[in-house]
C-alpha cells in the first residue's frame, strides 16, 4: 500500500472542503472496496478522510412518507430495518444477495453506490484499462468478457457496476443527497447518479470533486410484490451474472431494474411499460441495443429467462 496521511472528519461540510483542498484525498467509510484496491495499488490516495464518526448512520422517516437512509448505514442494518423489510423488501433482498456477512457488517450505503467494477482487467495492473489508466485502451473487449456489460457500454469500456443494492435503489427511484465543499446541498436522482462510460470511463458518478454523500432517500412505498433474483456462478458470495429487481403491481403493471448488464443499474421505461405483455416483451425492451461479445452474449437469454421465472413467481 502506498503511504497516505489520515484524518478524521469533524463534520460533513468540513470533510467535503478537506477533500477538495487536499490533493489526492479520498473519503473512507467501510473501506471494504477502497482498501482492497489500495493494497493492489489500483487506488493510491495521498490522504484519507475517515467519515465513519460523522452522524450519518440513521434511517429516518421523511415528511413525504419515505425513508432517509444515512450514508453510513451499514448494509446489514439497512437490510434488517423493519420498515425496509416491510415496505421496500426488494431492497432488503438485494442487500442480502450481496457480499458476505462480514462485508455487509462493514460496507455502507454510500460506499456501496460508489464501489468500483470487478472487471478482471481493471484489477490486473499489467493490462491496459481505460477506467484505471485513462487512454491506455481496454483489454476486456478481446479478453475474458463473460461477466462484463452488454448494455450502455462504449468503445472505451465494457465494465459492469457490481452492486446489488444500487439496482434496488434504482428500481425504487431513490435520490442521492449530497453536500459540496462550499456547503451547498443537492439531491441527485439515482438515474442520473451513475454515469455511462462514453469516452471517460474513469468518471463513474455525477459527484463533483469533494462532494460527499449524506444520505439516500426513498420515496413513499409503492406496495406490490417485491422480487430480487440474482443469477451467479455459485449460490452465495459471488457477483451477479444477471440480476433483476422487480415490483409487480396487482393491475398487471410492474417495474424492472437489472444488475450485471451495464455500467450502472439498468432500467428502461419501455420495459416497465411492457409489464402487462409479459416477460418476453419486457426482456426485448430492456435489452434493446445490446452489444455483446462472444463470451457474454448468453446474458441476453439469461436475462429473458430470469424475467420469465420471476413473472411466473409473481403471478402464481
Amino acid at each position: 500500500m502506498k503511504t497516505f496521511t489520515y484524518e478524521r472528519a469533524e463534520s460533513p461540510a468540513q470533510a467535503a472542503a478537506a477533500a477538495l483542498s487536499r490533493p489526492g484525498a479520498r473519503f473512507i467509510a467501510g473501506g471494504t472496496n477502497l482498501l482492497d484496491l489500495m493494497k493492489l495499488q489500483i487506488e493510491t490516495p495521498a490522504h484519507l478522510i475517515d467519515v465513519n464518526r460523522l452522524e450519518l448512520d440513521k434511517i429516518e422517516a421523511t415528511n413525504e412518507g419515505g425513508l432517509r437512509i444515512g450514508a453510513l448505514v451499514r448494509n446489514t442494518d439497512l437490510a434488517a430495518d423493519k420498515r425496509v423489510r416491510r415496505d421496500y423488501a426488494v431492497l432488503s433482498r438485494a442487500l442480502l444477495a450481496g457480499a458476505s456477512g462480514q462485508l455487509r457488517n462493514k460496507a455502507t450505503t454510500a460506499g456501496n453506490l460508489l464501489q468500483r467494477t470487478r472487471c478482471p482487467y481493471f484489477y490486473d495492473t499489467t493490462k491496459p484499462c481505460n477506467k484505471r489508466k485513462p487512454g491506455t485502451g481496454c483489454a476486456a473487449m478481446k479478453g475474458i468478457s463473460r461477466n462484463l456489460a452488454i448494455m450502455g457500454t462504449s468503445d472505451a469500456c465494457i465494465a459492469t457496476h457490481p452492486s446489488d443494492m444500487a439496482v434496488a435503489m434504482r428500481l425504487l427511484d431513490a435520490t442521492v443527497d449530497t453536500v459540496a465543499p462550499n456547503g451547498t446541498k443537492r439531491s441527485i436522482p439515482i438515474a442520473d447518479f451513475h454515469r455511462l462510460p462514453g469516452d471517460r470511463p474513469e468518471v463513474e458518478s455525477a459527484l463533483a470533486p469533494g462532494e460527499l454523500i449524506l444520505s439516500v432517500t426513498l420515496p413513499k412505498p409503492i406496495g406490490g410484490t417485491h422480487i430480487y433474483r440474482k443469477v451467479r456462478d455459485r449460490a452465495s458470495y459471488a457477483f451477479a451474472l444477471v440480476s433483476v429487481a422487480a415490483v409487480f403491481t396487482p393491475d398487471k403493471g410492474g417495474r424492472f431494474a437489472f444488475g450485471g448488464l451495464a455500467p450502472k443499474p439498468w432500467r428502461v421505461d419501455a420495459a416497465d411499460a411492457a409489464a402487462a405483455q409479459g416477460a418476453k416483451a419486457v426482456a426485448e425492451a430492456a435489452l434493446s441495443g445490446a452489444r455483446t461479445t462472444r463470451d457474454n452474449a448468453f446474458k441476453k437469454d439469461l436475462t429473458a429467462r430470469t424475467l420469465a421465472s420471476i413473472f411466473a413467481e409473481a403471478r402464481a
Partner: peptide, 19 residues
Amino acid sequence: CTVIVEGRRINSCLTLAVM
C-alpha cells in the same frame, strides 16, 4: 481473518486499525 469488533464480525484485513 474474521474477528468481532463492537459485537459484529468483520474481515480484519479490510479495515485499518486507526478506524
